[in-house]
Design a protein around this nucleic acid. Structure first.
Lengths: 338, 338
DNA sequence: TCAGACACTGCAAGCGATTGCAGAATGATT
DNA sequence: AATCATTCTGCAATCGCTTGCAGTGTCTGA
């Protein structure tokens, strides 16, 4: 493998000059730079990132920690982050916490510590104090995506507003009996997203002078199957049937649509359904939803980090950065039958 | 940040001994090793992977290249690989090719070359000759998962056998009019998986003495929506209607089930449906399928690499490694109506 | 008792870059 | 023409660890 000395020799300069010419090109005459670049290209030289990192302290590598990957939202965030990083010449090292407690510990106590990353992006993770402490001890920038982390710069959608937007959409259509499928308690330990969405839903109802009935809420596990079950219960009560359902995720919303069909109900004729996410299947099911843009969230996380990694970080925005969301009306919501 | 010299001082030995004690512990007396380990733990020492890599030439890092991440199969493979790597103390650096041609080029011409990975896993990727050449020029182990790469060690399920198994299941139930939804031409440029599955399907029919009717095949794009469209066409011909559909992916199979329902047909009463994958939604839809185990494929890829990275690779298996698959019968297939 | 084998341990030379410092060359200013 | 500022470039130290080689000490067998 050819190294910087080879290039230096070939171009008739010192390794110092090669290094400078190839990185930014400051303090090097244009002529020399061109010559060096030509030599490098000719020899097919690529810097050894290890040597470079060791000498400079910059890793050109970002660690991304996700609770699981096998899920549309997380994969999208990672994908967005990956693309943005690539544009900046950074690598992305992926840490997945699916492997259980042992795996989780090793990530925080071992992998993240070996000086391999310049910064860390934590996606929808509730970290223990110990874990946050360890990350801070690294003295490296850390940004979270979704799921507010105590004391950590976090990108997040305003879940309350999202829920309110969805619910208001249903109210505006004329619905007065609106059910909600949200997270169950177990989920709430990890994010408080479900609770926030529920509050937003209730707030919208109250604002419209509608009573939030306790039995119009059903917890579920954010899966299609969970949403299906919950919707079956909600819609299975002939005279008590709500005319609309706001599900806290598209997957649960899709489950609700399928449940409605199985009960012989027509969507949106008999019941309107709205979700949150703009999942890839939302279009197929004609699902109205409040889109959040996970790819863009990943990209934005990278931008924030790049800013912090710059020698003199300027525009340090506040701790919490609000991400955009948007109501997308498709065919699954309509005015209630008269 | 504390380094090896600090540990050496604290333990009263040389850095050489610390290094040896902490990596394997060969050639170090048990007593010394214990002392060193205690010092390291006490000081909270973690090796600098850059320095280590630079000195040893081992990166403890594997590059994984995927065409996109936002898809159940790929995410699962990556997840499996990640967990396996973590057990071996390796990092996983993710390269995503979604970003278009420019991004793709930069991955192969820049990122993968900077001496950061010990080996590369290419998931379901059709690589150009140039790209394969570049990877081989790295002189690093390379293994593919799915999608045979010319001259590259590849893990793959026997797509022909998978398709035959699915089709035979339908035949065994008594179906004689079996349609197939497979990949379209565009897809076939990237994998030849679709074609192989189609061949397997036809082979099974022929073996059972059933004619493979040209118009019982419909190409689709491996999405739920695509499967839906294709199935609508197949099932929309009243007197020509097949009694069973074999879809080359679960997503298309699910689309088929939804299409059948929309046409007022009952699954499996009027039409049986079987897919391939064992997608996470397969259970929910009661979909019979031929499971392939993407996580296991990711794990296996890692095992193969670890073997190749060992000083003296032994059991070098053949170029192609067959991965297991398994028929899973759920409710979507049954004998045809009489 | 002594030589040879063996098990530990330390010395020091890398690994391949980056970068502060200083010298050389060039250009500008008076 | 002399001086000073500026721009380029090279020297050499440094980043933190690994590992071949050699030295020391201990153990075994004759």
């Amino acid at each position: 493998m050819i190294n910087i000395a080879d290039v230096a020799r070939h171009a008739g300069v010192s390794t110092a000059t090669v290094s400078r010419a190839l990185s930014g090109g400051h303090h090097v005459s244009p002529a020399t730079r061109l010559r060096v670049e030509a030599s490098a290209a000719h020899l097919g030289y690529v810097v050894s990132s290890n040597a470079s990192s060791l000498a400079s302290g910059r890793m050109k590598n970002i660690g991304v920690v996700v609770p699981f990957l096998n899920h549309w939202f997380f994969a999208s965030v990672v994908e967005g982050a990956q693309q943005a990083l690539q544009r900046h010449g950074y690598d992305l090292t992926l840490y997945n916490l699916t492997g259980g407690l042992e795996a989780r510990r090793s990530v925080f106590e071992h992998f993240l510590l070996r000086q391999r990353v310049d910064a860390v992006i934590a996606v929808s993770l509730e970290l223990t104090e110990n874990e946050v402490a360890r990350l801070h001890a690294l003295n490296k920038p850390l940004v979270g995506v979704g799921g507010p982390l105590a004391g950590v710069r976090t990108l997040t959608v305003d879940d309350l507003a999202v829920a309110r937007l969805a619910t208001e959409h249903l109210i505006a259509l004329g619905h007065t009996r609106i059910a909600h499928i949200g997270g169950d308690k177990a989920f709430d330990l990890d994010f408080n997203l479900p609770t926030n969405r529920r509050f937003g839903y209730e707030a919208a109802l109250v604002a419209a002078g509608i009573e939030a009935r306790r039995d119009d809420f059903r917890p579920a596990d954010f899966t299609t199957a969970g949403g299906y079950q919950a919707a079956k219960q909600l819609l299975g009560r002939p005279h008590e049937r709500p005319t609309a359902i706001f599900a806290a995720s598209d997957e649960m919303a899709i489950g609700s649509i399928l449940a409605a069909r199985d009960l012989g109900l027509v969507v949106p004729g008999d019941v309107s359904v709205i979700g949150v996410d703009d999942h890839e299947l939302a279009t197929f099911f004609g699902l109205s939803t409040v889109a959040q843009f996970p790819q863009r969230q990943g990209e934005k996380a990278v931008e924030v980090l790049m800013e912090e990694l710059r020698p003199h970080p300027e525009s340090r925005t506040g701790l919490n950065i609000n991400m955009p969301f948007e109501l997308i009306v498709r065919g699954s919501t309509a005015r209630p039958a008269v």
